[in-house]
Design a binder for these strands. Structure first.
Ligand code: SF4
Ligand code: SF4
Lengths: 132, 132
DNA sequence: CAATTACAGAGTTAATATATCTATAATATC
DNA sequence: GATATTATAGATATATTAACTCTGTAATTG
């Protein structure tokens, strides 16, 4: 029960991209180096963010990654969901009645956390965070 | 990023114990059978709850597990912490300033979840939940 | 003592996270 | 168009953790 390192990398990368230009992309080489992670692995992670539509990639010389649209509405939850998936944190194979008290409690707790992550937008932290 | 099955077993077992007698212990055999898990494995999990002080065990014939004290103040969070540990969900190796915005957001989100789990006591669900 | 039950520790298996490697596709520059 | 650069995809490898098993020991009952 821990957030993956991939999520950590994704969050840091996104913060860098928010502070970077929205036209000139940033190469994965640079993004990876500042986080101490291999470029190929980070690229694999970022591809998921591309597919989620929050960033876009540019191949070729001077290529890299940049934010796709208005950075203002990208939330922490968006990023986390793109990396970790959206499945419930508490899984149960059985279905004992439509109203299972345990699941209700766990799900509500999870939603409390997600609500906060959804309220916090990337733009809220931009510029506050300088370096990884 | 998922709660372990061990946590699932612990929660279900605790709910059963809340509804059971506080003097006559329930054998792990019975507790395990109703959840479709092996007795030895469940026993290993329950030992952690014993060490956390929320249940107590009785060896020998007619032995088993029972709640240790007043069941009213045992919360979901108590159980989860006993099984999953109390470490933060978002780990970061570095320390960039005393106030890291990322960690602040993640920690606060986690606390929102924990707050709900701490507010929900076992007694709140007792009797509502009949069977695993 | 004999049966039952929890406990402890080592060991096993399965699943997942964390990467790496190689080849391919796209793009810019010359 | 050729070449260098960069992202992407897929397969593979390694490490870590979860999930479970096995075996022996200790405690309790009768
Ligand atoms: S009681 Fe709820 S959580 Fe437990 S097994 Fe049934 S449906 Fe799942
Ligand atoms: S910015 Fe914060 S979360 Fe990121 S590496 Fe530094 S201390 Fe950790």
């Amino acid at each position: 029960m821990r957030f993956s390192k991939a999520t950590n990398y994704a969050l840091h990368t996104m913060l860098m991209l928010v502070d970077a230009s929205t036209v000139k992309p940033v190469g994965v080489q640079q993004l990876a180096e500042s986080q101490g992670v291999s470029p190929t692995y980070l690229s694999k992670i970022l591809t998921r963010l591309v597919k989620a539509g929050m960033i876009e990639s540019v191949s070729g010389v001077n290529g890299g990654y940049r934010l796709s649209r208005t950075k203002d509405d990208i939330t922490f939850l968006d990023i986390i969901h793109a990396i970790e998936g959206t499945a419930s944190l508490f899984e149960c194979d059985f279905v004992h009645g439509t109203e299972c008290s345990i699941q209700a409690v766990m799900k509500e707790a999870e939603e409390k956390m997600e609500r906060h992550l959804q309220q916090t937008k990337l733009a809220d932290l931009a510029q506050k965070q300088t370096q990884v």
